[in-house]
Design a protein around this nucleic acid. Sequence first.
RNA 1: GGAGACGUGGCCGAGCGGCUGAAGGCGGCGGUUUGCUAAACCGUUAUACGGGCUCAAACCUGUAUCGAGGGUUCGAAUCCCUCCGUCUCCGCCA
Length: 427
Amino acid sequence: MLPRDLLRNEPDLVRAALAARGQEGALVDRFLALDGERRALLVAHEERKRERNEASREIGRLKAAGSDAAAAIAAVAALKSAIEADEARLAGVEEELAGVELALPNLPHESVPRGRDESANRVEAVVGDPPRFPFRPQAHWDLGPALGILDFERGAKVAGARFTAYFGAGARLERALVNFMLELHTSEHGYTEVLPPFVVNRDSLVGTGQLPKFEQDLFHLEGYPYYLVPTAEVPVTNLHRDEILEESALPVRYCAYTPCFRSEAGSHGRDVRGLIRQHQFNKVELVHLATPETSYDELEAMTRHAGRVLELLGLPYRVVSLSTGDLGFAAAKTYDLEVWLPGQEAYREISSCSNCGDFQARRASLRYRPADGGKPRLLHSLNGSGLAVGRTLIAVLENYQQEDGSIAIPEVLRPYLGGLERIGPGR
RNA sequence: GGAGACGUGGCCGAGCGGCUGAAGGCGGCGGUUUGCUAAACCGUUAUACGGGCUCAAACCUGUAUCGAGGGUUCGAAUCCCUCCGUCUCCGCCA
């Protein structure tokens, strides 16, 4: 959500920010109308309630004194019905207002490159060189099945399209990557590991911004008020929903492994081969909660922490600052990490690190008490992949493939695989 | 799944349907006293949304909030209903 004061006082600024995202400003006008209506109703309504409260106190006094209060009670009847009518109107306006507020996306940070789509994204850094192969490198969807470690057909059989079964060294490699990432972030980067629920309720999804707008992207458990997590960002960021943290406890830095479940509605036909776009994938997520003064430093730190995973794995990548038109709903600024995939001869997203500013904090009521003891202030929340595990496995397979179709295991992963140095045919 | 108990402020804990935003205690903050520390004493101590004043804040004021949502009532922390959560016992279960 955006601050109401900002919408009231600087609507043009918000319209301009929406335009930079490629959106119309109609919601701003709707907000202004509803907000004005709400305040007018509220003033009248609260005045009537004040009168009623006063009258009720008087009735109490009369009764206590043993007098007859019947006349006084009769006099309040009109007030009572007016209050009930007000309440209904006010509830209607507030419901619609909440809908508008929850539908407005975050404002892009001033440092974000302006542009209508990903073509305006800015490459901030390129790390490592794409490997040169003395043979034609294969894609992971050929390498994996040939080695017997990825089975797309059987994944589809037991669940459906966009589900995959891992076998043998493939399953072990995925697990090794999860452990390697968690170990790096907890032991070297100072994160606190969290193992959250893999399902969440509606309040949590509203808190981080997936609801009410993006219901169609989620898997909902029929008959239960639960959704499968689309990312650990949801349960982890909501851990401190409706809380006030002490400033001395900041910044909070959590890392969490979870599977992620996404319906991928609207992406039919895109990335249909291989592991790139699955309904279920594993991810190690990073979440920071910080003061407004430090959140952009935190974003740089988080992005470095995610990049460090790729560096230690020896995978070439680049850092991209998303343009205003490519930014996610809740993000004020986002860096994508894109890993080089030889099978596609392209950089593909493997991490997305965002500072959401106070946008999620306002929805989820994430606050902190300043060290000087002043009023609670909204936190800034950040989240980033550190990293998407399935896509990391793709990158390892494709970048470390040998001419015979086997896979060399990156040095840093070998301790997690019992010293395994290479994945050859035969699982 | 069956039976029962309970959800009050940062914490503990009172609260006959009316003057209870809520006693008391602890903790926190400010102060007095005091070689220092401690103790004692005095005061203070929620949040949200509006209105007034203001450049803004402070401040003044209203409404709401005693798990959540409905209901009864002139009036609900107190009565009724539903839901959520916690605890105990039985059953089942990894």
